[in-house]
Design a protein around this nucleic acid. Structure first.
Lengths: 142, 142
DNA sequence: TCCAAAGTGAGAACGATTATCACTTGGCTC
DNA sequence: GAGCCAAGTGATAATCGTTCTCACTTTGGA
C-alpha cells in the first residue's frame, strides 16, 4: 500500500500522519463526493468512534492547507469540501445538486486578462463553481 | 426624488417600504462596496439607532429575493453583499480585496454548454467571482 | 375608522466553528 | 532503548453569525 501511504502522507504535508488523521483522510477519499464537516465526521467516527469533532476540523484545515482538500461551495450554512488529490493543476468544480458528486472542470476563464484590461482591475484570484445534475441523477430523474 | 423613491420601492418588490427598510436600503447604496450584514447594520444604525439587527437581516433577505442585492462572496465567515441594482442582466463580480469595491463583470463562461456536453453534467447554475485590486488601490499601493 | 397582514425590536435559541486545557503520542537525539 | 519536546488529541466551553419567537406597532385597503 505504498501508493496510498504516500497519498495520505501528502494530505498533511509536513504534519504528522497520526492514526486519526489517516482515518479522516481515508474517510474523505471514500465519500467520493462533496461533503460537509458533519458528513466527514460521521464517516470517520463510524470507523473510529473515539475521534473528536475538533480533530476533524483540525485535520480538514490541515488538508485544505496542502491542497489535498478543497472547498467547493456550501450547503445549508456549512462549507462543502471535496477531495481533489494533490498537485492537480488549476481547475474548478462541477457539483451535482442532487447527489453531491463533484468532478473537476477545466477553468473556463480564457480571457481573465482581457477582463483586467477593460476594467482596470488586476485579477489575483477567482472562484468558479458550476452546479447541475450529473449523468446518473439525470438518468434516474432524481 | 421620484427616481430614488422608485429605486427603493424596487428593492423590496411587493413588500412594504417602511422607514427602517428605506434607511437600510439607502445605507446599502451609500456604502458603494461589498459589505457584510455587520457593515450594513452599523451604517443603518448610525442613521437610525433604533433599528434592530433582526430587521437588517430580514431586509437583506427581502432585497436579495428581488435581486436588488446580491451575495458576492464571503469575508471572515460572514456573507458579503453588494447593491447591484435591479433588472440587470446576467453578470458576475470583480471584488477588490483591498477596499471591497465591487464592479460588475461580463459572464466569462462562453462555453458552459460545451462543458456540459463533455462531462455529461447538465449545468443549471454557476457562480463566478473574480478577486483582485481595483485601479485606486493599485495607484495607492495598498 | 376598522382590521388583517406585514413589519419591528429585543432577546433567546441555534448551529457551525474555534479556542482552551490537560493529557497523549510521534519522532528526534543521545 | 530512554528521554525530551513539539505536535496532536478529545472534551468541552466559548464565540460568532444567523434565525426564530413573541408581543407590539404600523401599513394600507375596505
Amino acid at each position: 500500500m505504498a501508493a496510498i501511504r504516500d497519498d495520505l502522507t501528502y494530505a498533511f504535508g509536513a504534519g504528522r500522519l497520526t492514526p486519526q488523521r489517516q482515518t479522516i483522510a481515508e474517510s474523505a477519499r471514500s465519500l467520493g463526493r462533496a461533503f460537509t464537516i458533519d458528513d466527514l465526521a460521521e464517516e470517520a467516527r463510524y470507523r473510529d468512534p473515539s475521534i473528536g469533532v475538533a480533530t476533524v476540523y483540525r485535520a480538514v484545515s490541515a488538508m485544505e492547507a496542502t491542497g489535498w482538500l478543497e472547498r467547493v461551495g456550501e450547503r445549508a450554512g456549512s462549507v462543502l469540501y471535496a477531495q481533489c488529490g494533490a498537485g492537480d493543476r488549476h481547475h474548478h468544480h462541477l457539483v451535482c445538486t442532487s447527489c453531491g458528486r463533484v468532478e473537476p472542470a477545466e477553468c473556463p476563464l480564457h480571457d481573465v486578462a482581457a477582463h483586467a484590461a477593460t476594467s482596470g482591475f488586476v485579477i489575483t484570484n477567482h472562484e468558479v463553481t458550476l452546479y447541475g445534475l450529473c449523468p446518473a441523477c439525470l438518468a434516474t430523474g432524481s
